[in-house]
Simulated scan of single mutants.
Amino acid sequence: MTPQDICLIRDSWARVEPIAETAVSSFYQRLFDIAPELREHFASTDMAAQHVRLAQTLGAAVANLDDPATLVPILRKLGETHAGYGADVGAYDKVGLALLWTLENGLGPDWTPDTREAWTRAYGFIVENMLIGAASAEAA
């Protein structure tokens, strides 16, 4: 990611944060619309708490995009945890689609092609490191 990507992501996240509760709710609705099979992974989950965790995790990722020494271990640990939930590459792809859709809908006209590309690159970085963590967990 470039410094411009990081600025675009941080600027757009600053616009989403005030509506984070609505955005996260929309995210999960969209995720379950496009991937109803993932709903079973959340059957015993306190979704209100899950909404808070997702918003906090995204906020932490955004805050540390320019500090990979801090962000990468967090993402790899998250990947290890998600491996235990049965998350696979297909699930990550669907989460990415739902995330981009949510950001686009939340940002409206502030969702530019450059912002989309920046978030796409950031999500790719996040997934890459989570998958490394998942592979590490599976190898152990």
Score class of each variant (00 low, 15 high):
residue 2 T to H: 13
residue 3 P to M: 07
residue 3 P to E: 14
residue 5 D to Q: 01
residue 6 I to W: 12
residue 6 I to K: 14
residue 6 I to H: 15
residue 7 C to W: 04
residue 9 I to T: 10
residue 10 R to S: 12
residue 11 D to Y: 04
residue 13 W to L: 14
residue 16 V to P: 00
residue 16 V to D: 00
residue 19 I to N: 03
residue 20 A to T: 00
residue 20 A to S: 11
residue 21 E to W: 00
residue 22 T to C: 01
residue 23 A to F: 08
residue 24 V to F: 13
residue 25 S to W: 05
residue 27 F to P: 05
residue 27 F to I: 06
residue 31 L to G: 03
residue 31 L to T: 00
residue 32 F to G: 09
residue 33 D to T: 04
residue 35 A to T: 00
residue 38 L to A: 13
residue 38 L to N: 15
residue 41 H to N: 09
residue 41 H to C: 03
residue 41 H to R: 11
residue 43 A to W: 03
residue 43 A to F: 10
residue 45 T to G: 00
residue 46 D to I: 03
residue 46 D to E: 06
residue 48 A to L: 15
residue 48 A to E: 14
residue 48 A to Y: 12
residue 50 Q to I: 11
residue 50 Q to K: 03
residue 50 Q to P: 02
residue 51 H to P: 01
residue 56 Q to P: 02
residue 60 A to K: 11
residue 61 A to L: 07
residue 61 A to S: 09
residue 62 V to L: 04
residue 62 V to W: 12
residue 63 A to T: 06
residue 63 A to C: 13
residue 64 N to Y: 04
residue 64 N to A: 15
residue 66 D to F: 05
residue 67 D to K: 12
residue 67 D to Q: 13
residue 69 A to R: 06
residue 71 L to D: 03
residue 72 V to N: 15
residue 80 E to K: 09
residue 82 H to D: 03
residue 86 G to Q: 11
residue 86 G to W: 07
residue 87 A to K: 07
residue 87 A to G: 05
residue 89 V to W: 13
residue 89 V to E: 14
residue 89 V to A: 08
residue 90 G to Y: 12
residue 91 A to P: 02
residue 92 Y to R: 05
residue 92 Y to E: 09
residue 94 K to D: 08
residue 95 V to I: 10
residue 101 W to H: 10
residue 102 T to Q: 00
residue 105 N to K: 10
residue 106 G to W: 00
residue 106 G to L: 00
residue 108 G to M: 06
residue 108 G to L: 04
residue 109 P to H: 03
residue 109 P to V: 04
residue 109 P to Y: 00
residue 111 W to Q: 07
residue 111 W to E: 06
residue 115 T to Y: 12
residue 115 T to Q: 02
residue 116 R to F: 14
residue 117 E to R: 15
residue 118 A to L: 09
residue 119 W to Y: 08
residue 119 W to C: 15
residue 120 T to N: 13
residue 120 T to Q: 12
residue 121 R to Y: 08
residue 122 A to S: 15
residue 122 A to R: 06
residue 125 F to H: 11
residue 126 I to S: 12
residue 127 V to D: 14
residue 129 N to P: 02
residue 129 N to F: 06
residue 130 M to N: 04
residue 131 L to P: 09
residue 131 L to W: 01
residue 132 I to F: 01
residue 132 I to M: 03
residue 133 G to P: 05
residue 136 S to D: 12
residue 136 S to M: 05
residue 138 E to N: 14
residue 139 A to I: 10
residue 139 A to P: 07
residue 140 A to I: 02
